[in-house]
Design a protein around this nucleic acid. Structure first.
Lengths: 352, 352
DNA sequence: CGCTACATTGAAAAACTTCAACAGAGGTGG
DNA sequence: CCACCTCTGTTGAAGTTTTTCAATGTAGCG
């Protein structure tokens, strides 16, 4: 239930507002001057504040000013109350960052609408999300529903891709963001000699191809389907409007990118100094973690040896030999090309 | 000069507003009903729209609704005009996404204040910045000045660091963001065997240590001063408030991170498959580009062989031998340990 | 002067890659 | 339906590249 703080010196008006809001099943807090109101705001962190301008001790402007200085209250919606005659005061209030205002006398509908409207807007902005990248999944859907402007879901189309199909190619101009509904994708780069290195693995619930869009330049890598996939195509325009109209999504993308950087740094260290054995084992483990997060006991890695080698950054033959060694050491088993991880612990403990 | 579109059916009011705004040196466009106004908005892309609610043909709500459907006009500030008596209409307008409203009759000050206030807010949001990372430099300063809440500049302090000093260490909790006023920094990781790999080079005008802050976890790398430095310490709180109160900064950080990812991917490909010679030459060139962007002819690389090896991802001895080869081939010269790039072109053309 | 830290060189060893050959699966067309 | 072709996976052996180990040189410094 939403908590609303009412700061108003006139007891009648105050009680009246509180009553109306309570009837609309909000919980209310009341204060009879700015100072008291601030104290209460700090202690209770209300979801919205309704505040009179003309008050003894600390007036409405003062409250607004102090709110802005407080990190946790800065974004709380703030609705002014003022007498009809106080026009310049109202302007001043809006300039100082008030979100809306109501002029006295007001009627019930007006009050409730203003409150509902501001609460809704605030919610859209500060939407809390689960910390996993998967959270973006739910997010994009809720955003698509809530967005009154355009429903991303409707506009976007889902496309099916077969194994080995290329989703995009290095050097091409990005026209859309991809969201993986189903299937697995890898991204890779090729050096002058044609050797491939896999630089990213993507699974259901992941986004694909955002760096090129964010940097506003052509793709720097190729993307290929590892396992038959269904991708939601989100046009560049939709992506940008989603991104910049929704602080929550922006926040999440920043975290996503940030984690990306960190992962790549880990990978760098590994590729630079790890031994063949270590490289192969970390590659196997990263596949395992990425695609078998539910710890399915019978999970198998189904990937061509070329791809696997490109993921590890070693020659195909070296990879195969190492896999053979691991099989002999009973760390993995291989049946018809599929690799089963038998002893994850030991695989993790392999030294350089 | 800012362009303002006035949509109002009453010719007197319309001309009056236009006149006032012209006097305040805005340029104005006028339309006498919603339909005409929309056409003009699409054709002219004004910076702000003032619009009456009650109008023939297409009313104010209709205009607002259509604006929201148009990508280029969606974020244009929108101020309603309405008669004092039309309170429920005003609420409806605010609910639909109007930014502000003015009740008729209004006075000059009120109008001008509302216009100025909305224009200012819109500008803060969509601030355009130069594309270079250096842009952040100017940005943080302007942000510090404009930010009415807290001046980052005042709060933060500048600290001096000596060569070889550690700025932060892997595993430590980040408490602040660093902005490099002067000097050079490198970040590096160490593997289990103690071998170091440099994963980032930072120069004047760069930010340092943001990934840990953004991911909200401990540092994943060490940062060490390469050349005596002065760093602005920006507290975590300031950084976060800066980041989330200023869309422009957020935008820029997204681009920064994005480029970071791309760079690391390039580096990965290089470290994975390049030959020793190629690795050394790209390392030299990346140092050259990073720290001698002004193409100073007498620039020299002053770095310990250990550091250089860590940057390249090879053994120190291998690095030294390759440097020797390059010197014999007259690609570089070495005096007292300092490396001078003699033939950048040829260095770039070295094959695997 | 002796100590320490960094730079350089030589030679041997290790770690991978490359080349080459071959096997099996799977698809194709006569 | 089978011979044939191609593609992928595997193995052996030779070849390269890079690292490691060890010795030596050099500069700064209390």
């Amino acid at each position: 239930m939403k908590k609303i703080l009412i700061i108003e010196d006139n007891i009648e008006i105050r009680e009246n507002i509180a009553e109306i809001l309570e009837l609309a099943s909000y919980s209310t807090l009341t204060a009879e001057n700015g100072k008291e109101g601030m104290e209460m705001a700090i202690a209770q962190l209300p979801d919205l504040i309704i505040c009179d301008i003309m008050m003894p001790v600390l007036d409405g402007y003062g409250v607004l000013h102090m709110l802005h200085k407080n990190k946790r209250l800065r974004n709380t919606p703030f609705i002014f109350l003022s007498a009809k005659s106080e026009k310049p005061e109202i302007r001043k209030g809006m300039e100082m960052g008030g979100d809306d205002y109501i002029t006295k006398p007001f009627n019930t509908t007006e009050l409730l609408k203003a409150v509902a409207c501001r609460l809704k807007k605030a919610e859209q902005i500060s939407k809390e999300l689960p910390p996993t990248p998967k959270g973006l999944n739910t997010l994009i859907q809720t955003a698509a529903n809530k967005d009154s402007q355009e429903s991303i879901k409707e506009d976007s189309n889902v496309q099916k891709y077969k194994k080995k199909q290329e989703v995009y190619l290095e050097g091409h101009r990005p026209s859309s963001l991809y969201y993986i509904m189903k299937g697995k994708i890898r991204t890779y780069k090729r050096n002058d000699e044609g050797k491939e290195l896999v630089i990213g693995l993507y699974n259901e619930g992941d986004f694909l191809g955002y760096t090129a869009l964010l940097e506003q330049r052509v793709y720097n890598e190729n993307a290929e389907v590892l396992e038959d996939a269904e991708l939601v195509i989100i046009t560049r325009e939709d992506f940008e409007s989603l991104l910049f109209n929704n602080l929550g999504i922006l926040h999440k993308f920043i975290q996503l990118l940030s984690r990306n950087v960190t992962e790549k740094e880990e990978q760098l260290l590994g590729i630079a100094y790890n031994s063949l054995r270590k490289k192969v084992s970390t590659a196997l483990l990263s596949l395992y973690k990425k695609y078998n997060s539910s710890e399915n006991a019978n999970y198998s890695i189904d990937m061509s040896r070329d791809s696997l080698a490109a993921l590890t950054g070693v020659a195909k033959e070296s990879l195969i030999r190492t896999l053979g060694d691991f099989r002999d050491e009973k760390l993995i088993s291989i049946k018809e090309g599929l690799i089963f991880v038998l002893n994850r612990k030991k695989l993790e403990l392999i030294l350089n």
